[in-house]
Design a protein around this nucleic acid. Structure first.
Lengths: 245, 245
DNA sequence: TTTTGAACTGTCACTACCGACAGTTACGTG
DNA sequence: CACGTAACTGTCGGTAGTGACAGTTCAAAA
């Protein structure tokens, strides 16, 4: 019951936003749970690869160097499963389902790291994805029981920490979206443009003149501070100014 | 300890993907926890309003009719906070922070509904947002304790259910994304187009001829099955085929 | 009542885009 | 070796997008 209490206390701290430093969060997690290591990764897809936005972990510089030098990110099934899905990913399950990733787990054992753990996918706005990987150092059957009892704690903690990271990082980009207020007509026209309609088609659809459609698009380009309809649509989709049709 | 066990069993059912029907999930939740009502909403922003993609709840047709007739969605702070944020939203907290939403809670009391509860934001891919609202029927102090113990359960259950909903809903659109594989050059060209560059500019940037840029864009349009560069960029941003610049 | 903002329209000249024609070069796989 | 795929290039003719000119109408806010 003491452990139970410690867990609840920790979650309360997180919910009150009292933990925005990754190092602080990792320390808190390792003190509260029987966790060996933690890794937080935020990335966005880029042409079959990944563009890493944020990366924090407790595996140490040596492990990171090994991982990078051997290009283990190319075979890491946990990255693919967690960043591409929405459910918790069990490390051993991933290991069995993807035999080609053995070098990854061999490398882990080589430097004395456990191969038991779970990775929690954390969807972010704007198509980005993040994950919190939790590495534990205990026998498989013990981990099975421990996981069953604490996955909910891991999930809530991960969500709250991820929220804190998002709130912190979003401050920079938030200002530029301020004057991105489009009128209803501008939004309509832009939406149809994103659907591949020409000015003439949009004019016909909305029952207005082609010139007026161009007028709205010009205003939209000016407001979004862009030089082409194409760029305007890219901005609009990214900032969710137009609906998914 | 019996309740504890029931909770863990329920979470296990959810994790194994054994619950994709909203009605089934709601029943399970109400049987496991002391929950009065549940609401699951998936929506995307649309010009200061919301476009509802999925909506399931247990409040009944009468409550829904009241909500719609009085246009309570316009003042509902829980919608705004949960769909716009990433942290759990406490109903009473929202009520105190937004005095203009009193009609909402008055309407709830009028038809005999409790005003205690919590809403869990559930970020989805592609800029969409979802929430699971949990409504309980207990005194404030009791709810405070209950919430403290079970928020983690709610969060994990919500995440797993949301995952099931996404996996189920994505089946339809998943096929079309299959052949959306762009080559590295196509991605590069499309990325610059999304940045508002003309063919001539992209050609200069990449050090190739303007004709070649057009060639890649034509291939891209064909692969994405669209009719203009503008539409191609909209698709690409939505499916995260190009990075956020 | 004046002012502001949104919605709306017309013409001109220029540039950008787009489809269809017809190719070359290089690399890896069966 | 043949085959497929990716990267690359040229020309022609038509359509679409873009900026700058100069307006009207209506409703709500100051």
């Amino acid at each position: 019951m003491t452990e139970q209490q410690a867990v609840l206390d920790m979650l309360e701290i997180l919910e009150c936003g009292g933990c925005v430093e990754p190092a602080h969060f990792f320390t808190l997690m390792r003190r509260t749970f029987r966790i060996a290591h933690l890794l937080y990764l935020e990335a966005e897809p880029y042409a079959d690869e990944l563009k890493v936005c944020r990366l924090h972990h407790t595996f140490g510089a040596y492990a990171a160097e090994i991982y990078r030098a051997r290009a283990l990110h190319r075979i890491d099934p946990i990255l693919k499963l967690a960043l591409g899905g929405v459910r918790p990913v069990e490390w051993t399950m991933a290991r069995h389902r993807f035999p080609e990733c053995e070098p990854l787990f061999e490398a882990a054992q080589e430097i004395g790291l456990s191969t038991e753990g779970v990775a929690l996918p954390l969807p972010s706005p704007a198509g980005r994805m993040a994950l919190l990987a939790i590495n534990v150092n205990m026998p498989a059957d013990e981990w099975s029981t421990y996981r069953r009892h604490h996955l909910r704690d891991f999930q809530l903690a991960a969500n709250l920490f991820h929220a804190a990271m998002l709130e912190h990082g979003a401050m920079a980009g938030a200002l530029s979206v301020r004057d991105m207020r489009l009128t209803s007509r501008e939004t309509e026209v832009l939406t149809w443009a994103a659907a591949g309609k020409s000015y003439w088609e949009i004019a016909t659809i909305l029952g207005i003149s082609e010139r007026t459609v161009r007028f709205f698009m010009t205003n939209t380009r000016r407001k979004l501070n862009v030089v082409s309809n194409t760029q305007a649509v890219a901005q609009a989709v990214r900032h969710a100014l137009i609906p998914t049709v």
